[in-house]
Computed example of a mutant assay.
Amino acid sequence: MGCCFSRSSGPNSPYPGGDLTTSAGAINPPPLTLPESAQSAARRGHAGANTASNHRSAGNQTLADNSRRHSRQQRPLDQHINKPLKPFSWISKDRLWTRRELAQERRDFFDTRVTGRAEIWQTIHAALQAMWEDPNGADGVALAQTILSAAEISLPTGSLANGVYDSLGNYYPLPQYIVCDPNNVSEDSDVKGELPTGVDDPQAEDISEDMEKDKHVVDVTPQVTLRARLSENARDYQIMISPSETSRSVARKIANKASLSADKSIRIAYMGKILKGGASLASQGWQEGHIVNALVFDHKA
């Protein structure tokens, strides 16, 4: 009897219907099922998230590619932009300059340089002197370019008024009045150390006069050996000179030794300074055994 009463299908069964799985179904309810519309929305949202993720990945890859391509196109840090030297022109609007004032200001400027390398300032001064002596001609620019190139001085814009860089990356700023005279400069014939345009320097000897003197005057001064480095090919040439011989005469000897053509001439530079043609090397600080720079430039056609 007891067995009969424990059966779930009897009249006293607490689970009518006799379903053996009723209690299990009550304890473990069926999994929640979303409506079809919600399932479609969820699938669309998942697909959109994947698409956005793909777009972000593609965008990041594009940025990385552009960054790598840009880094390849960048100029190495040890290289500087160097453009050919070009003439500079300007008009003074806040001051009326005279040639006397310009000469004094330029002397004071180079005497008071305390930053950068002293030899670079001397080279810049020599290049500017070449342009000051030939402000309206191509010879001055060509000679100045040769001087700057020999010292590995670079011009980022091609204009000295925008400053220059040395081989170590040091910057050397140059004011406008240092580079050249303003177009509205006041002529002053009494300027000490400078002569008006078109007036010859009385201390400078004419080349033809030097040649005539060489024919008639026998120099008995002991000869010394001079070594000159030619800017055109970086070769050294040795010649015999007299300590009292003019720089212009020495330049002719170097040109003959190097077999330069007649359309080229030489200016001698020593310690970053262009030597005066009418004075001897010794009187301008040259010491026996020191190398001088022979700067070659073409005559204006």
Rank of each mutant, 00 (worst) to 15 (best):
residue 93 K to F: 04
residue 77 L to V: 13
residue 72 R to A: 08
residue 81 I to P: 02
residue 112 T to C: 12
residue 96 L to Q: 15
residue 88 F to R: 00
residue 102 L to E: 01
residue 87 P to L: 00
residue 85 L to A: 03
residue 116 G to M: 11
residue 104 Q to E: 12
residue 98 T to W: 01
residue 84 P to M: 05
residue 81 I to Q: 07
residue 98 T to D: 00
residue 91 I to C: 02
residue 86 K to T: 09
residue 115 T to D: 14
residue 98 T to L: 01
residue 95 R to C: 08
residue 96 L to C: 09
residue 77 L to I: 08
residue 72 R to P: 01
residue 80 H to E: 04
residue 102 L to H: 09
residue 114 V to E: 13
residue 86 K to A: 09
residue 86 K to V: 10
residue 77 L to M: 04
residue 93 K to W: 01
residue 107 R to W: 05
residue 92 S to K: 04
residue 96 L to M: 06
residue 77 L to F: 06
residue 78 D to E: 10
residue 83 K to D: 01
residue 117 R to F: 09
residue 104 Q to G: 03
residue 111 D to R: 13
residue 90 W to P: 07
residue 84 P to F: 07
residue 75 R to G: 00
residue 101 E to Y: 03
residue 77 L to P: 04
residue 104 Q to L: 12
residue 84 P to T: 07
residue 71 S to I: 06
residue 85 L to P: 14
residue 77 L to C: 01
residue 108 D to G: 01
residue 93 K to G: 08
residue 115 T to R: 11
residue 94 D to H: 15
residue 100 R to Q: 13
residue 97 W to C: 02
residue 86 K to W: 01
residue 99 R to I: 07
residue 111 D to H: 14
residue 83 K to W: 03
residue 84 P to A: 05
residue 82 N to Q: 03
residue 76 P to D: 08
residue 103 A to C: 10
residue 74 Q to E: 14
residue 77 L to A: 13
residue 108 D to C: 09
residue 117 R to D: 11
residue 88 F to V: 05
residue 75 R to N: 03
residue 103 A to G: 02
